[in-house]
Design a protein around this nucleic acid. Sequence first.
RNA 1: GGAGAGGUGGCCGAGCUGGUUGAAGGCGGCACCCUGCUAAGGUGUUGUAGGGGUAACUCUACCGAGGGUUCGAAUCCCUCCCUCUCCGCCA
Length: 425
Amino acid sequence: MLELKFIRNNPEIVARGISAKNADADIGALLALDEKRRDLLVMSEKLKAERNRANQEIAKAKKGGKPDQALIERMKEISSRIKALDTEVAELEEDIHKMLLTVPNLPHESVPPGASEKDNQEIKRWGEPKEFAYEPRPHWEIGEQLGILDGKRASKLAGSGFALFNGVGALLERALINWMLDVHVTKQGYTEVSTPFIATRDCMVGTGQLPKMEEDMYLVETDDLFLIPTAEVPVTNLHREEILDSSRLPLYYTAYTPCFRREAGSYGKDTRGLIRIHQFDKVEMVKFVKPETSCDELESLLADAEALLQMLDLHYRVLELCTADLSFASSKCYDIEVWAPGANSYLEVSSCSNFEDFQARRAGIRYRPEQGAKPEYVHTLNGSGLALPRTVAALLETCQNPDGSVTIPEVLRPYMHGMEKIGKS
RNA sequence: GGAGAGGUGGCCGAGCUGGUUGAAGGCGGCACCCUGCUAAGGUGUUGUAGGGGUAACUCUACCGAGGGUUCGAAUCCCUCCCUCUCCGCCA
């Protein structure tokens, strides 16, 4: 959420930022409502001041035993006017707030301009695409042949767009989760949390999924609770409505959670294998930092995510998203895409974003810069480290052998009972 | 799901027979004083948000959330949410 005052004072900057993001929001209408609200507020508050003065008089008079009946009658009238004004103000405030929630975050000044995802900038390549003497097979074939992926039965359980890992496949999934968490905790300074996989509407608004993305979420209607689309939601909301001690910052958290996404509107896209499914596992990193450090923190967050792919020895590239491809809440974002030779494409396995104070303002996450100073909003960041199914896909495809087996990366072997290869079982 | 208790400022905790209570008291924080050092002690100060004003300043709101009663509500009434205890059910 942007600050209303900021919009009021910088309408043209806001408008420019919104259009750079290819979004639209009616700033003019918003500001008109705001002006009306302030007019009514002044009227109401003047009346309230009068009422407060009168109330003291009445209280004093009553002690003497003779309340002024005429004054009470007049206050009755004023009270009803106040009530009417306040009702109107409250309605305006609600409208303004609703509109404010639909205004996207502005791109950071360093973000390259662009009209679509085609204008994203590739800023880095690590490693080389592995060479094959034969046509490398896609992970869905490898997985089915090794008996570690069972797409048919997955759809029996939950319909299309779900995965079922079998035997060593399930072990591989679990090994990756444990290994990633261990790297974040023991080598990169994150604190592990294990959160609910369901979140309230307030949480979803706090991180920016709502109100815009409601169709993309699974809603448990009976309780008005949402299945989380990413651990970003519960972890960022951990400190909702809190004033954090400045000495505690920066706070680094990591969490494993499943992620649930309806993927409404992307039917027919990436339907094969593990590339786009409704439920997937992910290890996420979330940071709460002081504003002046958030740019650097984004770089180190990206490095922490990259480190995982480097240890797995998987080739990847890093894209800096252009203004048009930035998500609603982010001000700057890097995507990491891992090379999947069988699918013959780069797969997004991590998205590292700086939200600046956009989420913090929505969720009320603040800190006190100095003892006794006014609380200010923290900056929040998050990045996947990493999304599991696509990592598994790239791994199976990259580490496949001519005989159909898959060599397990060394770092994972301790997590897989020392196993070196996945063969046919 | 049933019965009961409760939700007050950074924290703990009074007030809850309606009226200078934004809110006693304590802890913590900050400033100053005292002190050979440390510890202890003394005095003062210390919430958030939204308006108005060039400014000094000033007004308003906030005691879980939302309604109601009243000239006036942290205090009375209703609804909802959350926490705790006991019972039931269940991993």
